[in-house]
Every structure is written in C-alpha cells, then in structure tokens.
C-alpha cells in the first residue's frame, strides 16, 4: 500500500531541525537547497561543476526527454542542442557553447554522443501506460520561506493516484556514481514525498559514464536520513551566510 502518512512526520523533523539551526533569526534571503547542495558537500572544486560538464549533463537530459515520449534519436548532440535552444533562448551556458571553437565543440559532441548511446541502450522503450514525465519540478517552502527545497527529477514514472506505491524516480548523471549520488537519490524521494504526501516506491540513479544504476526502495529510514542530510546542508549554508 502507498504510504500517505510519513510526509507529515518528515515535515515536522525538518521544521524542528530548521528552528534549531536558525533559532529566532531569519535569513535575509531564503536558504535554497537543491540536489546539488547534497551531491557536492565539500568546498573543493568539482570537475562536474565545470561549464563543459554542466552542458554535457543538460544535453544528455534533453536526450532523455526526447526518448521518454518515444522519439527516435539519430544524432544525439544536434537534436539535444536543438531541443535545449528551444527551451532556453539565452543563458550563460548557451553563450558558452556558442563560443566553443571547432575542436572543443567536436570533443563535446563525441562526449555527449557516447553518454547518450549508453543511455539509449540501457533505457529501452518506455510504455505510455507508465506515464513517463521528464524534468519534473518540485518546490517546498519551509519555516515561513526561510528555507526552500528545490528539485528537478529527470524522469518519473507511475502515479500517485493508485492505492499501491507505484512512483519511481530516475536521476541521470554523467558522472560516476558515488556517495553524493546516493544522497541525491534520497533527496529526490524526500522532496517528492513532501510535495505529494505519497512516499514513492523507488528512487534510482543511472550513470551514463559507467552504465551503472543504483536503486533504493523508499522507506521511512531513507526519508529520515535525507532530512538530516538536508539539515546539515542548511547548517552549512547558514554558517556561510
């Protein structure tokens, strides 16, 4: 059966924890937590945050969006770039791609194609009855907007309207899987639980770098663990402010 009771408990843990961190004071601007806040915990520069890696990740995600509705992707780089440009007219990263020279662009194209081919081979066809939706956004305002949890789930299948848990969350990363990916998987499950009040069945992460997939059945322990990871991230952000 779908768990529709845990969400309230998670919200209470978060609200109480945030009060312990912030006390009576309120941040000037809301503290925003994203999956990336949990993925990269240290202040050491991470190669996956470099513009080229970010563009690669965005383009592979565009390929996922096209595949989710059964589109036949022949030229992953060009098609993903075309789809991205349709969504985002102007941004720092679009400008970055525009100013790449021929060699750099060719390297990016090869890289994106390699990751996309891994994704296409592993994903297979997604039946429409699974209700696949991509780039699903979620926002949760906590403690009178002192903290905002934001999340984007790359691919979600299943429904919250059935009596049994059937929602599966799928995160695609172009980096190898590590502890950070595990924290992000838990975070996706937590934010989805808070948003819909229904605990998802499973949260997964697929690496197009290694072809590896990690999957977790979501239960209360996973959600509680994620709330503490979120509270740690809030504390770090608050100290930096």
């Amino acid at each position: 059966m779908a768990d529709v009771t845990s969400a309230a408990g998670m919200r209470s843990i978060l609200e109480d924890g945030i009060f312990e961190v912030l006390g009576e004071t309120r941040p000037v601007s809301s503290l925003v937590i994203r999956a990336s806040s949990l993925r990269h915990q240290s202040s050491v520069a991470d190669i996956s945050l470099a513009p080229l890696s970010r563009v690669r990740g965005i383009l592979v995600n565009q390929v996922l969006r096209l595949l989710s509705i059964g589109a036949h992707v022949v030229s992953p780089f060009d098609e993903a770039l075309g789809a991205w440009r349709l969504e985002v007219v102007r941004s720092e990263l679009v400008d970055f791609v525009d100013q790449l020279d021929g060699d750099e662009r060719a390297r990016l194209e090869t890289d994106v194609t390699a990751h996309a081919v891994t994704l296409m081979r592993s994903l297979g066809d997604l039946p429409g009855s699974w209700r696949p939706r991509t780039a699903v956004r979620a926002t949760q305002h906590l403690c009178s907007n002192a903290v905002i949890l934001r999340d984007i789930i790359d691919l979600m299948v299943g429904t919250t309207s059935s009596e049994v848990a059937s929602v599966a969350l799928f995160d695609v990363t172009t980096s190898p899987l590590g502890e950070g990916a595990e924290r992000a998987m838990r975070y996706h499950a937590l934010v989805q639980t808070l948003r819909t009040s229904v605990v998802p069945l499973r949260t997964s992460c697929f690496s197009t770098a290694t072809g590896e997939m990690w999957s977790l059945d979501v239960d209360t322990d996973i959600l509680v663990r994620s709330t503490y990871e979120v509270l740690d991230a809030i504390e770090r952000l608050w100290r930096e402010q």
Partner: peptide
C-alpha cells in the same frame, strides 16, 4: 523541427499526466 515537436510533446505530456 521534429526534435522541437518531440520536446513540445514531452512538455505537454508532463502537464497532461
């Protein structure tokens, strides 16, 4: 393009579902 139509379909599918 066909890619553009596919992206529009994906976005509409999110809303419809």
């Amino acid at each position: 393009s066909a890619t553009g139509i596919a992206l529009v379909t994906a976005e509409a599918a999110n809303w419809a579902i």
